[in-house]
Design a protein around this nucleic acid. Structure first.
Lengths: 147, 147
DNA sequence: TTGCTTTTGCAACACAGTTGCAAATACAAT
DNA sequence: ATTGTATTTGCAACTGTGTTGCAAAAGCAA
C-alpha cells in the first residue's frame, strides 16, 4: 500500500462537499494505509502523531466515513466493529458482494458479483441485499502457508 | 411449528448426560418453537410463564446450549447475539440465509435459499457465506399500510 | 436421605458505543 | 483579513450487552 499525501486525502474529502478536519484526514489516511481492518481501539492507539483524538469524535468520524462511502464497517467475531478504507471508485452499497477476511478483518468489494434477488415469503419486501463471503484473503493465505 | 412436549426436550438434554433444569427446558423449548433467532432480551421477555430467569443464568444457559450443539449463536448487524435452535440433522456450516426486517429488527430464517458459492479472486478462500436480505417483513408491511 | 457436583442468583464489573450540549473551528461571504 | 454561521469537536454522563466471583440452591446418584 503506497502512502498517500495528506493533500490527496484532503481533496477526496473536499470533493464530497465536506469539511476537511484534522481528525478526518488522519483517520482516513490511517485506514487507507492499513493492511487490516481496524477497531476503534486500534485506531485510538495508532493516532500517536499530533493531538490525541477524543473517543466520541473518533466514533463520529468513523461513522461519517462509512456514511460517505469512504470506509466499511463490519462486526468481527468478538462483535467489535472493524473499519477499513473503501476502494477508490466505490459503487453505491448494497449493489455488490463483500469478502471479509477473518484473519486481517479487511473488507474487499466484489464488484462483479450480482446478488440475485431471491423469492421471499408473501408480504415480505426487500430493500437491500447484504452478501458477505467470509474466509481468508490472498495475503493472509500466503502468510499462513509460510509459517 | 409443532409445539413439543417438555418431556421430549427433557430426554434430549438427558441424552447428553446433562442435568435437566427448568431454565434449560424452558429456553430450549422456546428456541425450538421460534421461527426466528432470538436475542437474550427477546428470550427474557418471552419467558413469562413460571419464575423469571436471572439475566446471568440465561446467558449461561444459552452459551451452554451452543456448547452442546443444541443452539446456534450469531451476532446481528447491531452486534447483538441472536440464538436459534439447531436443526435435528445439522446442515453444513455456512448455509445460513436470513431476512432482516429493518422496521422491527427481527431476523427470519430462509431455509430454501440457494447460497451458490461464487468465484473469488485468486488466492482467496471462502469458509462461510453470509447472506442477509434487508427489507420489511409481512407484519410490518401490513402495519405500515394501515397508518 | 446423604453427599457431591453442577447450576443458579446476586452484586459488581468490563467494555463498546451513544447522547446532549456548550465551546471550538472550517469555510464562505463580506 | 474579518465576520457570520453551520458543522464539528470535546466532555461528562449514560445505555446496553455480556462477564466474573462467590455463596446458596438444586439435580442426581448411591
Amino acid at each position: 500500500m503506497s502512502p498517500e499525501a495528506p493533500h490527496d486525502i484532503s481533496r477526496l474529502l473536499r470533493a464530497r462537499g465536506a469539511r476537511v478536519t484534522p481528525a478526518r484526514l488522519r483517520v482516513l489516511a490511517l485506514l487507507r494505509a492499513s493492511e487490516r481492518g481496524l477497531s476503534h481501539h486500534d485506531i485510538e492507539q495508532a493516532l500517536t502523531d499530533g493531538a490525541p483524538v477524543d473517543r466520541v469524535t473518533l466514533y463520529r468520524v468513523l461513522d461519517w466515513l462509512v456514511e460517505q462511502g469512504l470506509a466499511h464497517k463490519v462486526a468481527d467475531e468478538q462483535r467489535v466493529f472493524r473499519f477499513s478504507a473503501a476502494a477508490r471508485d466505490d459503487v453505491p452499497h448494497g449493489a455488490h458482494a463483500h469478502f471479509v477476511c477473518d484473519d486481517c478483518n479487511k473488507v474487499f468489494c466484489l464488484d462483479d458479483l450480482p446478488p440475485a434477488t431471491p423469492r421471499l415469503p408473501t408480504g415480505f419486501a426487500s430493500t437491500q441485499i447484504e452478501f458477505a463471503i467470509h474466509g481468508h484473503c490472498a495475503h493472509c493465505n500466503r502468510r499462513e502457508r509460510h509459517q
